[in-house]
Simulated scan of single mutants.
Amino acid sequence: MWYLIIVAAVVITWLVLDRPILKIQFKNGKLTSIKGHCPPTFKHHLKDIGDSEPFDGMVKVYQLRTGAKLVFSTQVPKKIQQRIRNVFPHQGFKTLNQKVKSR
């Protein structure tokens, strides 16, 4: 009985803690899956980066109060990480503190 409660607590904690707003997986430089809203220009740049230098891995985008945060899996080379950071559209992802002004 106790093991069931512990397993349920671990699963619930895992579901609550890892909530990216965008998750992109790569296999041999190709986009295999995209979960969440990916701006079209960012997707185009990711395809170009993957075509020029094939790699495997995953990119997650988390929403923080200060803006979006990029998290890369360990398989993504540092050079590719920097190229992705350079083309990432920070204006496309709103911060939590921004409010829409309507007139």
Score class of each variant (00 low, 15 high):
residue 1 M to K: 14
residue 1 M to H: 14
residue 2 W to D: 09
residue 2 W to R: 11
residue 2 W to F: 10
residue 4 L to S: 14
residue 4 L to Y: 13
residue 7 V to Q: 05
residue 8 A to L: 14
residue 10 V to C: 09
residue 10 V to M: 07
residue 12 I to L: 14
residue 13 T to E: 02
residue 15 L to P: 00
residue 16 V to M: 12
residue 18 D to H: 09
residue 20 P to S: 13
residue 22 L to S: 03
residue 23 K to P: 00
residue 25 Q to S: 15
residue 26 F to L: 01
residue 26 F to G: 01
residue 27 K to I: 08
residue 27 K to V: 11
residue 27 K to E: 15
residue 27 K to Y: 13
residue 29 G to Q: 04
residue 30 K to H: 08
residue 30 K to W: 04
residue 31 L to K: 01
residue 31 L to G: 04
residue 32 T to F: 06
residue 32 T to N: 06
residue 33 S to P: 00
residue 33 S to A: 12
residue 33 S to W: 04
residue 34 I to W: 03
residue 35 K to C: 01
residue 36 G to N: 02
residue 36 G to A: 04
residue 38 C to G: 00
residue 38 C to T: 03
residue 39 P to C: 06
residue 39 P to S: 06
residue 39 P to N: 04
residue 40 P to H: 05
residue 40 P to T: 03
residue 41 T to R: 12
residue 43 K to P: 00
residue 44 H to D: 12
residue 44 H to N: 08
residue 45 H to P: 00
residue 46 L to W: 03
residue 48 D to T: 08
residue 50 G to P: 00
residue 50 G to F: 02
residue 51 D to A: 11
residue 52 S to H: 07
residue 53 E to H: 02
residue 53 E to G: 00
residue 54 P to Q: 06
residue 54 P to F: 07
residue 55 F to H: 11
residue 56 D to G: 06
residue 56 D to M: 05
residue 56 D to Q: 09
residue 59 V to N: 02
residue 59 V to D: 03
residue 63 Q to P: 01
residue 64 L to G: 01
residue 65 R to A: 07
residue 65 R to V: 07
residue 69 K to D: 15
residue 70 L to G: 03
residue 71 V to Q: 14
residue 71 V to G: 09
residue 71 V to I: 14
residue 73 S to V: 12
residue 74 T to Y: 13
residue 74 T to H: 15
residue 75 Q to H: 14
residue 75 Q to D: 14
residue 76 V to N: 10
residue 76 V to S: 09
residue 76 V to D: 10
residue 78 K to G: 05
residue 79 K to Q: 07
residue 80 I to V: 13
residue 84 I to R: 03
residue 85 R to G: 04
residue 85 R to N: 08
residue 85 R to H: 04
residue 86 N to Q: 13
residue 88 F to P: 02
residue 91 Q to H: 14
residue 93 F to T: 05
residue 94 K to N: 10
residue 95 T to L: 07
residue 95 T to I: 04
residue 95 T to H: 11
residue 96 L to F: 06
residue 99 K to W: 10
residue 101 K to E: 15
residue 102 S to K: 15
residue 103 R to S: 14
residue 103 R to D: 15
